[in-house]
Write a protein that binds this DNA or RNA. Structure first.
Lengths: 347, 347
DNA sequence: TTGTAGGCGTTATCAT
DNA sequence: ATGATAACGCCTACAA
């Protein structure tokens, strides 16, 4: 039972005194204890235990110039942030990895454009050692900010760039093979004999949406533009897009939706219209979002991406950079993770 | 354009020198500038701008003993954390309030029981000034930990206590009027002439679930126990509970579900069984979760709670305590927020 | 109103 | 292997 004395917390000084050693030695023991005689290590450890000593992170950060914290920046003004299981899983992966490395997760939610000033100040302030950012839209100011303040950053999803928005090179990201996965999905539909395959795209200011659309086009080189509708990655948006597609192309016999949430929206509309899935219209989603794809009616055939794994990977990449670089401005490499088609009942 | 010099960041010292004042004066200006002559304030501000000076939070924390950060602890081992819109909205509310007070949000996800050691070390370490915690289960170790390390904490939802787990008193929380809301829901059903009103409860190791069940019982004093089934706040759990209820009481004509997610699960089962809602069975949910209640088919009549507002309130309570207390161990008061019945089509 | 100087709790560089 | 001691960057009496 550490004695939580009223008021003051024990300092390293107190530990040293109690153990009968110098502050320096106490410090060494607290930080691993290399090169300290065994019995002294024991003495110090005991003092730490008795006093309930916990290092003061501020003091430590002041001298080491390392905070042991990483920012996770989510720049999604909409409700989507959490309601889309995608984020939750990725954050969970990140959290696990960071925790395993004794690193804290500071959550930075961007509500509106004005928040970027705050974010910049925060990053520039040195509150964190690095940053992880998600779901960037085409001309998100974040990459420029990260670069300006020299903050090592790993992006979730390939960032989109407009010319002049800060240049390319030197950006690390983790992304699924969106294009390849989309191709697989469309090919499945094709192999099943479907001939009028529509696509419900995500918001095209996000690269994941663009890449999936590109994959669709890779396979359907001369796809009728009327077969493509843009959604917003939400169920409601998917429903809307589905309705529009049916309006334009009543003869469509398959749909590839750019994510599962939109697929469920599409499913609802198809059901309302009395169209059987996959009988009349086959449907493939993307994500294999849990609690969504599997519990849909019928369960969704979809393209799985290892979202939690991608989160871990992002954190790993960043942590590795932080360890190594320590000033070298080393840039982590990007990683594309594979996808896998998961066949269930909708196609 | 602040000149981001390679390597070293400018210190207060540099600012002072450039402005031709002492460090003390520079510091005063940076922290509000009370009692400093106007032209000096301007001089310092200019130096700050020119140098791109940003205070070093570690150094500041070291002397002020305030970190400007608050921990948000989520102790939900399941996927629910984010997939349930409840958390997302509450976090959003918290984030807004904290941001408005220049306070950072450190997210602490507890995955398994063993993580509590880590949490305790973290809180004891003084990384944060206070904590916000959610969704505590009956004998969650968190309150005891917070108390032991003397961390000001505000809970989201009334904490449940087992005798001896750390005592009662002195705990601040923000909770919706679960019991009152449940009563309203059941009364609505009753007023509509329903006579066999079932309840799909949440996991009874959470007070919100217990309180809603109590509200149900308040109105239906002699409710048939067979009309009550326990779910787990997920859609799948709701479906299961609904199936069980129909098995036991095929004659039920109404259901009050303890949250919207479970209500949607129930909806699915009712539809599968060919039962019309609200024709054969009326249904009321709880939460008014966005993207859930409204877009259900039919849209859910439900009990709304201002979740984001509750989040803000939690943060406000904590921040107020931190400002005032500053050592006094002042305990914030708890707040119960009102609920409102939202009538849509399911009842 | 402004400046001087001490100290916050660590780590890290030296001697020893 | 261990111990002084000087930073780290900031705030805040206290003095002027």
């Amino acid at each position: 039972m550490p004695e939580q004395l009223p008021g003051q917390r024990p300092t390293l000084e107190a530990v040293a005194e109690r153990a009968g050693v110098s502050r320096a030695t106490a410090s060494r023991v607290v930080n691993g204890g290399e090169g300290v005689r065994a019995h002294l290590v024991e003495k110090v450890r005991e003092a730490v235990r008795e006093l309930g000593y916990v290092p003061n992170p501020a003091a430590r950060a002041l001298v080491t110039r390392r905070t042991g914290a990483v920012a996770v920046i989510i720049a999604e003004p909409e409700i989507r942030i959490f309601s889309d299981p995608f984020f939750s899983r990725q954050i969970r992966g990140i959290s696990k990895e960071l925790t395993a490395h004794d690193t804290q997760l500071v959550l930075l939610l961007v509500e509106d454009r004005g928040d970027y000033d705050r974010i910049e100040r925060y990053l520039a302030g040195g509150h964190v050692d690095g940053a992880l950012a998600f779901s960037l839209h085409t001309d998100d100011p974040l990459p420029a900010i990260a670069r300006r303040v020299g903050m090592p950053t790993v992006y979730g999803g390939r960032p989109g760039w407009t010319a002049g928005s800060g240049g390319h090179g030197g950006v690390a990201y983790v992304d699924a093979d969106n294009r390849g996965g989309a191709r697989e999905a469309v090919r499945l539909l094709l192999d099943q004999g479907r001939r009028r395959i529509a696509h419900i795209a995500g918001p095209l200011d996000q690269t994941s949406a663009v890449d999936r659309l590109d994959g669709y086009r890779d396979v359907l080189l001369d796809a009728d533009p009327a077969l493509i509708a843009e959604g917003d990655f939400t169920a409601a948006g998917g429903a809307e897009a589905m309705a529009a597609l049916l309006e334009r192309c009543p003869d469509l016999d398959a749909v590839f939706a750019a994510n599962d949430l939109m697929a469920t929206g599409a499913l609802r509309v198809l059901r309302e219209r009395g169209l059987a899935v996959p009988g009349d219209v086959a449907l493939v989603g993307f994500d294999d979002a849990e609690l969504v794809a599997e519990s849909a009616d019928p369960p969704l055939t979809t393209v799985r991406q290892d979202i939690e794994g991608m989160g871990r990977l992002m954190a790993q990449l960043l942590l590795r950079t932080l360890d190594k670089a320590q000033g070298d401005r080393a840039v982590p490499a990007s990683v594309i993770t594979p996808t896998a088609l998961v066949r269930r009942d909708s196609a």
